[in-house]
Design a protein around this nucleic acid. Structure first.
Lengths: 353, 353
DNA sequence: TTGAAAGCGCTAACAA
DNA sequence: TTGTTAGCGCTTTCAA
């Protein structure tokens, strides 16, 4: 039988080189290799060079499991989405993944699909894998029960928030976003503002509607009609316009709870012979490019800056992992993105920002 | 000072219990605990019970790093999306994650963001973490260079495919999908079919257009006008309709390369006074609910079954990890989803399927 | 400056 | 049936 290397043909089973392989090739001990590779201790330059070149030659990559075993750190975090990953979760995940990757952390993706059983299963799995921390996200901003108590590692909630005020949650400032939308409409001279949004029991719908009302009332105004609660769809947007035109025919602006609704509203207004923005200015929420850009005209919209939010969550998690936790609810500002649906051809009263 | 437990207050630094903790509590050796927990060897029922209860009491979860270290398996796979994670990647990821989770594997999420440098960085990271396998996905179905050569672990390409025919790739049968769309249009009696799609250089656009043509020609027909290549947007769909109505005013069906295009087409046709589906039947591609359902009328569309595709990729990867690789390109059939845009009020010639 | 050896938490072979 | 021990790959004292 051949002496050394087993089954040279099936390159696919070649075991990765270990630190002893490197030591052997460099003619030193494993301890020395470890020092050379990690820049610890003091070695002769020549020795270090020899080790590095041996490692290079073997394509050596330290086995992270071994490292984890005696450092106690895995440089790994878990990301649990409580409900199905969707449009809102993606930017969150991306932002977090990006920030964590920069910190040399790898991310375990866990999709709990609205199933508490799965959620707990993933939690156990992550703990068993000794992740250094966990980010919990969800598709709604509403507070949820903590995912666990007395966990041995830090947890940060992103977008969604924990019902325990001592937990660290990073959420969009939806009320602030709604206020910005209203401010903008007022800034371009609109006074008869309507609000169309999603289901009344939906946290985001309620918060945004309340904030819009509050902001108007600060200016001594009211909504031109009570908020129209319905669903998060274009169809509802269209339908709501019919209701609205009956109730408040003289409206000059509509602030919508979502871009989808706003798009339906735009279509229905056009069909009814109202020009956007000339007769009616229109603001959406989410700044979902697919909707906002395809809308005719393109839609001014509130952006929750989800990617940045994910990044913030990740940064807070990293800080907590390093012993510097930031408990409490952190609100991230929203940003208003201006487009044609609120562009005033001849500006009667320019907004300041 | 208190005798036993250190710093009871900061529950957050409590180190997870180890197997020796369990052994101590149960009054047995670590070997016995291992056997009891893994159902190996033969133990007295009473002993096993005692160990299990001790483990339970301590909330013991085996440290996966240690397990990985001596089994050589991490029960972990990497998922690299070569381009930014988006609408197409999600269902793929979800399907794969689901199938892998069922196999007790955890998934590392890696978003390479169209950057080859990041891609190679992630590859090295994953190898260093000794993942058992890797799934590579992308937003385009076009073949791409292999992510690495002579890798020590199996790789499966999903949606995107590897340029190396010996690699394992799972792709949607886009040509088959396009054929189904055309068949359906012919089945409901349409004969003057047009095709509007994305950029000519885009692999999917080219494949779908070619397949549509081929299928028509099998029936002795041709497209009512040369395929209109443009971009993947509603605006292009609208614009293309203007061109089309000039060139082939008597068309009775449009097959579109995407749902977004199709939606633009629907809007423009309506604006031009053509009824859908009565005058012109309409089929999209992607079955993207947001577009297909919001379209007026709701859109018949080709579904690439991305989630199933992700699942298949994961299954093939698991098989490969277990020593049973399935090299080559595997085409997954598409499914035609029927909606109102091809509903024939009075069926003149019912399709068979 | 380098090597030897202990130990991280667990499994498996072997002994008792 | 149970315990002891070697070792997985690496880091880190401590000696040499």
């Amino acid at each position: 039988m051949p002496p050394r290397k087993p089954a040279e043909t099936d390159g696919n089973l070649a075991k990765p080189a270990t630190i002893s392989d490197v030591a052997l090739l460099a003619g030193v001990s494993v301890g020395t290799v470890s020092k050379a590779l990690n820049g610890r201790g003091s070695l002769r330059v020549e020795t270090r060079r020899r080790v590095l070149s041996a490692a290079e030659q073997l394509g050596f990559q330290a086995n992270k499991a071994a490292v984890a075993l005696n450092s106690g750190r895995t440089y790994t975090v878990g990301m649990i989405t409580t409900d199905t990953i969707g449009r809102f979760s993606i930017p969150l995940l991306m932002g977090a993944e990006d920030a964590l990757g920069a910190g040399e952390m790898s991310v375990f993706l866990c999709d709990a699909r609205d199933d508490p059983i799965r959620e707990q299963y993933y939690l156990r799995t992550l703990l068993s894998r000794r992740v250094d921390g966990i980010i919990v996200t969800g598709r709604r901003t509403q507070a949820r029960p903590p995912i666990g108590t007395d966990l041995p590692i830090p947890v940060v909630y992103a977008f969604i928030s924990s019902a325990d005020p001592d937990d660290c949650s990073v959420v969009p400032d939806e009320a602030g976003g709604a206020a910005k939308a209203v401010d903008h409409l007022l800034g371009i001279g609109r006074r008869r503002v309507a609000h169309i949004t999603g289901p009344e029991h939906h946290h985001s719908a309620a918060v945004r509607a309340a904030a819009a009302r509050a902001r108007l009332s600060e200016s001594g105004l009211t909504l031109v009609a009570p908020p129209l609660f319905g669903e998060w769809s274009e169809a509802w947007g269209r339908q709501a316009v019919q209701i609205l035109l009956g109730a408040a025919n003289d409206l000059d602006a509509v602030f919508c709870g979502s871009d989808q609704i706003a798009r339906g509203v735009a279509d229905a207004l056009r069909a009814a012979g109202r020009r956007v923005p000339d007769d009616v200015a229109l603001v959406g929420f989410d700044n979902w490019d697919v909707m906002a850009l395809a809308c005719q005209p393109p839609l001014t919209s509130v952006d929750m800056e989800l990617e940045k939010l994910g990044r913030t969550a990740a940064d807070l998690l990293l800080a907590a992992i390093n012993g510097d936790p930031a408990p409490g609810k952190h609100a991230n500002p929203c940003r208003l993105v201006l487009r044609d649906s609120t562009a005033v051809p001849i500006a009667p009263l320019r907004a300041r920002d």
